[in-house]
Design a protein around this nucleic acid. Sequence first.
DNA 1: ACTTGGCACTCAGGACGGGGGAGTGCCAGG
DNA 2: CCTGGCACTCCCCCGTCCTGAGTGCCAAGT
Lengths: 337, 337
Amino acid sequence: MLDDRKLAVLRAIVEDYVSTNEPVGSKSLVDRHNLDVSPATIRNDMAVLEELGYIVQPHTSAGRVPTDLGYRLFVDRLSGVRPFSPAERRAIETFLAGAYDLDDVVMRTVRLLAQLTRQVAVVQYPSLTRSAIRHIEIVPLADRRLLLVLITDTGRVEQRTVDLPGQIADDAITQLRAVLNACLDGRKLADVASAVAELPERVSPPDRPNAAAVFSVIVETLVERNDERVVVGGAANLTAADFSRGLHEVLEALEEQVVLMRLLGESGDQAAVTVRIGSENEVHGLRSTSMVTTGYGAGEQALARLGVLGPTRMDYPTAMGAVRAVARYVGQILAES
Amino acid sequence: MLDDRKLAVLRAIVEDYVSTNEPVGSKSLVDRHNLDVSPATIRNDMAVLEELGYIVQPHTSAGRVPTDLGYRLFVDRLSGVRPFSPAERRAIETFLAGAYDLDDVVMRTVRLLAQLTRQVAVVQYPSLTRSAIRHIEIVPLADRRLLLVLITDTGRVEQRTVDLPGQIADDAITQLRAVLNACLDGRKLADVASAVAELPERVSPPDRPNAAAVFSVIVETLVERNDERVVVGGAANLTAADFSRGLHEVLEALEEQVVLMRLLGESGDQAAVTVRIGSENEVHGLRSTSMVTTGYGAGEQALARLGVLGPTRMDYPTAMGAVRAVARYVGQILAES
DNA sequence: ACTTGGCACTCAGGACGGGGGAGTGCCAGG
DNA sequence: CCTGGCACTCCCCCGTCCTGAGTGCCAAGT
């Protein structure tokens, strides 16, 4: 059904279309790539490819354009991941190495990805749940209000205000701080919920209502409210691709943190680079875009995901290479700090 | 030179053009607004207005379009600020009141502004330099590395890692923490630099090199590196206005924090709503956009600025009203927390 | 069973060419 | 100073034509 030449034709169509943005016809195909057969032969192959749903023609008497299915076949079987040259790798590394805190790492990563791929870059903040607590700080703000600051071993700092049911004395705060740090330091955040459950008995009875308020905020922050932020960059690159009328929808989708989270999260394998093409995205406004994502993290386990988003007509090998390389180096940076 | 009717004509032209996005002619003017004179009279007025540079016609035998100068006159003398109805105010208030921390306040503010004005919203994080230190925390991360966390009375939390020249003992950290909090708590950040200068003598000599490293990071963070972040939202609204080819440039400018800072910062009066129209923006890519900004802050002094950005063809009264109202309520929220 | 050249066919897109219409400037009269 | 009338100017829309790239099909060649 799909002999080698037909696959080669599909690959050629994808490559040409990606680089020229024009439907590609049989004649220009044989010219550009050195397939040593005649245009007529190619036409027959293209007819088959079209029948199978890998390509379409926008209108009669026009060249062919890959379908989502065609791109899918392309990334799955026809294209590798373009590896990055040592020079490029060095550039990535030095660019990221200059960062001085987590926010900065994330910002730099977004910029870097956007610039490397000339697409929209999307980076999720390292997840809380996989990391461990390094320190908890409590600061009185007002009479019945505290500021709770949580520092994780990935360098992330979470802050939350707590409204207390009653007054609280300074030494009670000191006690509470000691208890919290004694019991929670070094705990994986995933385990915190259960650890917190046994805390109340360590607090002197009169302070328990206040302590309970603090505890519930901790649990809420870390476990239930899984509000990973997602940072987007390079939106200007969207104007290069012509989404005709859809650009508005794409931009809208990019502003919905929830939507982005879903897109990033729905990938199977954490370590591998995964590609979601066009209609494979369930999000309505992104039916004509593709996402290339992968997990990243300090060490082995993935803490979060990052990737790029662009038109389905995208240079997948390069995008995949960039995403993979950047993820790797961000992981290194995070592991070091 | 500019009698009342001519001003009325200019106002009418601006209003019509803003709402229809089409060059407005003499006839449609007298129809829509009840100027009780004939089209010919209006034509004469328009000729004068054109001569003075307030309006132009895109081509002969077309209606007139306001120039930047025209809009300028409009906002300065012809339009007030559209006040918001009590219902709208309540909506703003309740929307913002749900926020649980500073990040959330800023995010909500951006969304709110974008939605109210259907333009791009721009919100600067509350400035550090105007606020005071509420607490400083030091947490050992590794052998020769500390995490420094600064909490300000505006609820902002700054974090920075410090690389130390030498080892540091736990009790030295405790001492350092005590010294810092004793001397800096409640200080305005603007005064911190001088306060820090006298700190070294309070530290026991052997620890001074390490302490110095910490102090220099503090000063650097708070004073020299004035890295106020700017958050942008509602970029999708740009697609409604037709920037033909310039949309790319606008999006690019919006991704440059530095550019945004300059735009927000360059305003004179902190409290008033200021408008910068088209070519009044020195930034290259934003020559066809206008910005409406104002300062906001807890209490009287402005901590930072916020505003909206859109095409020069913008509903200025509404935009100004929205910016003013939102700034006011954000200030309230900040003052409370 | 493929491949190839030939041939007729299709259609998007650019060039050309009128109207139609909205708008203007000017002028003479109120 | 305002007004109606009038001639004029272009943009824009619409229909027409034409060209060129590309296709599908077929009959002949390997």
